[in-house]
Design a binder for these strands. Structure first.
Lengths: 222, 222
DNA sequence: ATGCCGCTCATCCCATCGGGTGATGCCGAG
DNA sequence: CTCGGCATCACCCGATGGGATGAGCGGCAT
């Protein structure tokens, strides 16, 4: 049990949300609201003075974006841990803000006591995700791949087509693929055409992207 | 606040650790220990009867490995959430057990109240990591992406070029991008040319792939 | 053996792509 | 003020990509 209350700073552009959170948190034993802000600049400016343990941060606010606010806050006040509270989940933003140093990512439709719980965990030096979010993070670590789609496409493409697709995913041109496989460029074009039809895509860029997403091939690093 | 206590099952091969955890948890308001086991087989066998909300699982136990225990428990008892408590952190094991359905991963050198906190969070449907662990998980999510490269490229591309790049990553043609951004196709071509030069790539496919790898953009799913 | 399918290739055609050159207007740094 | 970066566009050009058609060859199945 912490000796002193956990100091919480609220950043949200909606008056109503701030009010609700304030009530919720101040009601909670061991938690105290020590400040609030309604936009990104204010948040960055005020957080340092308030010296909270946890910054409860809305992603969408006028001025700076949530990710940028997170980054700046982490830059200027080492000790502050950022718990993102957002209303919808944008995958890109999720990873962005995590990389920017956030310690948690909750959806606003979380039950109220979840929020209090999460604040405590974050203050304790842990990292908390909403369950739905966590699935994505873990899925992301395990693979960017979509197993279902992979199964679906797996039998669709012939062996040779898969070979060609793999080389396409390395960014090779038809001519290069032809040389690599010791076949004519025309043949490669035929294969590519079939791949495009089978994957229902209009050009090689789209085809490679969907193939990578489906886990058919991996992105060709050097 | 849960109406009934959170039911906790302890799985650890060290008598002393079980004793300490039991004391710690039973002391904690809202948490109750409903069973314990000292090896993997016992854990799998006993957990279902005990019907805990949270299984506190040591990774290293005689018999089954922690990952396997986690997988089996998740297979047979849907409702049980697994909180891994381990003494050393092995990266591979971490991802393995997460993929096996664990809801959290703490190091044993966590402060005592951290554990209680984490149990509550996990019971609340959240996912909790120790801070040190979380760094790795986040690094893992960015595994597809290369932070260093991202930093390197970040300032290289102008705002407009980034917009174009994002649309390229959705598989759009120059013409489509032009319409989307309300600019001429020629302009798009100019931007694309600059992007190719700056990323040192020969065609849009390669450019998109390296951009995705670098984490500059995400793969454009529907 | 007849047909289907995968792999191979050729030829023709046109849209798209990417490069190059040059031009305009804007804006901020030196 | 000038220089350079950015965003916008036009024109020309060669290379590439993708579609369509047709065709020969080798398996494999009914």
């Amino acid at each position: 049990m912490p000796v002193t209350d956990v100091r919480v700073f609220i950043a949200d552009d909606h008056e109503l949300v701030r009010f609700a959170l304030k009530a919720l948190i101040d009601d909670e034993p061991g938690l105290t609201v020590v400040g609030e802000a309604a936009d990104g600049e204010d948040t960055v400016a005020l957080v340092c003075e308030a010296q909270p343990d946890v910054l409860l941060l809305d992603m969408r606010m006028p001025g700076l974006g949530g990710t940028e606010v997170c980054r700046r806050v982490r830059d200027v006040c080492e000790g502050v841990r950022v718990l993102v509270l957002t209303s919808y989940d944008d995958e890109e933003e999720l990873f962005g803000v995590l990389a920017a140093g956030a310690s948690g990512y909750l959806l606003k439709d979380s039950r109220a006591d979840n929020v209090a719980q999460a604040i405590r965990s974050v203050a304790d030096g842990q990292v908390v995700f909403d369950d739905a979010i966590a699935q994505r993070v873990i899925a992301g670590t395990t693979a960017t791949t979509d197993r279902a789609a992979a199964e679906e496409y797996k039998d669709l493409l012939s062996e040779r087509e898969m070979e060609v697709l793999r080389l396409m995913a390395k960014g090779m041109s038809n001519k290069e693929i032809a040389r690599a496989l010791w076949i004519g460029e025309t043949t490669v074009k035929t294969h590519v055409s079939h791949i495009l039809r089978k994957l229902d895509q209009n050009d090689r860029t789209q085809a490679v992207l969907t193939a990578v997403r489906a886990g058919l091939v991996s992105m060709g690093g050097e």
